[in-house]
Design a binder for these strands. Structure first.
Length: 243
DNA sequence: TATAATGTTTGAAC
DNA sequence: AGTTCAAACATTAT
């Protein structure tokens, strides 16, 4: 369900609860629920795919993983991992990872690595890529310490747009091309956000889960690539392999 | 019914 | 000691 842009939407949808007191906190997550009940929810933040619920002195970190779901003022039959009840409604999370982070959030997160954050820093990303010339670009794009928020859809769409083969080695890709990849990453991520809001994300896929290249009409290759072995959809003819 | 899918962490194995 | 890898988690649609 979630790549970075989807978590931005999640945050927008729950803004109504910011500043409100928690009446009760419950669920199957192995955290101390007593820490939350009665406290005032200061703010919601996001870092890539991490959804952050901030309180004075600590933060609840939610990661929706592959199948995570959240419901606002609704419940499933299934017991939630975390359920927060406010004076103006409730927020329920299912099938996700829930953790409690103590203290200052800044000690956990590098905000310049989050593609959706205002502090995103392309130069910092470029520097990090230079340190791993032997890695494949398909793996690097999924590296959350470099491109926090990028997932398999964004990876595939970006590489198709810039015409780079997913198994290309970072050190062999020309510098201007690296710059282009980073730039396109940001451009596509915000288009993802836009299209997701309009509920038309899949309509615009040119690579992800596609069968044919719209540029040359040849069949796409589907292959688990890199050390991460995540599915890549690409055109052998249009996407150049740097090796 | 088996499979695959927008993901990460953990700990064993090498 | 550092890396690699499979397992675990869990849900829904095809």
């Amino acid at each position: 369900m979630p790549e970075g842009p989807s978590i931005i939407i999640l945050r927008e949808e729950v803004m109504q609860f910011e500043g409100h007191k928690i009446f009760s906190a419950s669920g199957s997550a192995k955290i101390d629920m007593d820490r939350i009940a009665g406290k005032k929810l200061l703010s919601f933040k996001t870092w890539g795919k991490n959804f952050l619920i901030c309180f004075s002195g600590f933060t609840i970190k939610i990661h929706l993983l592959m199948f995570g779901v959240y419901l606002i003022n609704k419940r499933k039959k299934l017991e939630p991992k975390l359920s927060l009840v406010f004076d103006n409604g409730e927020l329920n999370f299912y099938t996700c990872s829930v953790k409690l982070l103590e203290g200052d959030l800044n000690q956990y997160y590098d905000w310049t690595a989050d593609i959706m954050n205002e502090n995103w820093d392309s130069k910092a990303a470029k520097k990090k890529l230079e340190e791993i010339p032997q890695k494949m670009i398909c793996d690097a794009l999924l590296e959350q310490d470099i491109f926090s928020g990028v997932g398999n859809i964004i990876k595939n769409e970006v590489l198709y747009r810039v015409k780079v083969h997913p198994e290309s080695l970072i050190g062999k890709i020309p510098k201007p091309k690296i710059t282009e990849i980073i730039k396109e990453n940001i451009i596509y991520s915000f288009q993802f956000l836009d299209w997701k809001r309009k509920n038309e994300l899949a309509k615009h896929w040119l690579a992800y889960s596609q069968k044919t290249c719209v540029r040359c009409n040849l069949p796409f290759v589907k292959k688990d690539t890199g050390l991460k072995k995540r599915a890549s959809f690409f055109c052998n003819h249009c996407q150049k392999l740097y090796e």
